[in-house]
């Protein structure tokens, strides 16, 4: 009453700062930036604990170990961004591995690989249609597909590993360009494509919009049906791509391959800051999540900690990362 401050345009809320923020400031505040710090911190600690950690050879080792889980985690990111989950990637990985190994017995490599990828995509399409068209819960559908996939891979393989794959296959892993192995190059290329797609295309933004508010996205005329199915197709196809790189290294296909791979992929996406409710996350975060997980495994090996401790370490990182994020968010909303 006594003080009547001059009213500015009342439409503009005062809790948004009026001055344009420094562009770098925005980068520092992102979750990806904090994850990068975490990854660097982890690398620092491990390089102190083990002299072998920060060697060129070990760095390539880490990147090499990141390829399979990294590829699968891209598909998982797509799915989780829509608010879904794909528990079947491990089983699809196993099954398409068997399909690829069988196909390689009777056809050339350039035909066998697309066939396996197509099979993976087909399985993803199946899940995606059940989820998007029939409205079934992603968790349940992919749980079912996981059981079916694993069972079929045992049947198709005759319950044993298939070896005797053509030796040329290893070219996709061991040929190098500028000293970088082909599989690592592929991984980098894949992440660049996925990042570009998710950030700058209609499809990518629709995937975010679906995870954030599917009803609003649909009402705004976006093709929510198509882009709800697509992530599962991508996820299935990428599981097959991942198994191709795996087979090229091991030179044998095991029906149990990729067991619990889905959990690693989900862990990487979650560490990378994606929300399991959808709408929030990025492939950059996922890549950092993958590197953090692989570094922990690699580092613990180097300092000769029993492999049974790996689960504890990774589990703790997930929980600490989520908790830290929550505390930061609380602080920023409270004061």
């Amino acid at each position: 009453m006594a003080d009547t401050p001059n009213t500015p345009n009342s439409d503009i809320p005062d809790h948004v700062s009026t001055a344009p923020a420094h562009p770098l400031h925005a980068v520092f505040r992102t979750l990806e930036f904090r994850m990068l710090c975490l990854a660097l911190l982890l690398a620092g600690i491990l390089s102190i604990l083990s002299p072998h950690f920060l060697t060129e050879r070990n760095i390539f080792n880490i990147l090499d170990q990141s390829v399979v889980i990294g590829i699968v985690a891209v598909g998982m990111t797509f799915v989780i961004l829509t608010g879904g989950i794909d528990l079947s990637v491990g089983a699809v990985f196993g099954l398409t591995g068997i399909i690829l190994a069988q196909a390689l017995q009777i056809m050339p490599i350039p035909l066998a690989i697309p066939l396996a990828v197509l099979a993976g995509a087909g399985i993803g399409l199946f899940s995606g249609v059940l989820i998007a068209v029939f409205g079934l819960a992603p968790f349940v559908v992919t749980l079912g597909v996981m059981a079916i996939g694993r069972s079929l891979s045992f049947i198709a393989s005759g319950q044993r590993s298939i070896s005797g794959l053509p030796l040329d296959l290893d070219a996709i892993v061991y040929s190098t360009f500028l000293g970088i192995p082909a599989n690592v190059l592929f991984l980098i290329g894949l992440y660049l494509c996925a990042w570009g797609y998710l950030s700058y295309t209609k499809g990518g933004r629709t995937i975010y919009a679906i995870g954030s508010n599917a009803e609003a996205a649909r009402a705004a005329g976006l093709s929510t049906m198509f882009y709800s199915i697509l992530p599962y197709v991508v996820s299935g196809a990428l599981a097959a791509v991942a198994v191709t790189f795996s087979l090229a290294q091991i030179m044998s296909a095991d029906p149990m391959a990729g067991n619990q791979l889905e959990l690693d992929a989900i862990a990487a996406v979650v560490i990378g800051g994606a929300s399991l409710y959808g709408g929030r996350g990025s492939v950059i975060g996922t890549l950092l999540g993958v590197l953090i997980m692989v570094m922990i495994r690699n580092g613990l090996n180097l300092i000769e900690v029993s492999p049974y401790w790996q689960g504890t370490a990774i589990g703790s990182i997930i929980i600490i990362a989520l908790l830290a994020e929550r505390l930061i968010n609380w602080r920023s909303t409270r004061n």
């Binding site: 700058y200 295309t201 209609k202 499809g203 933004r205 629709t206 975010y208 919009a209 995870g211 954030s212 508010n213 609003a216 996205a217 009402a219 705004a220 005329g221 976006l222 709408g279 929030r280």
Partner: peptide
């Protein structure tokens, strides 16, 4: 109406993107 995880710009352009035919935004 609101897609909370998208920015003001993206919310503003959401229907425009729905109307747009093509690969980009």
């Amino acid at each position: 109406n609101i897609v909370p995880d998208l920015s003001v710009r993206e919310n503003l352009l959401l229907a425009q993107m729905g109307q747009h035919r093509g690969f980009g935004r």
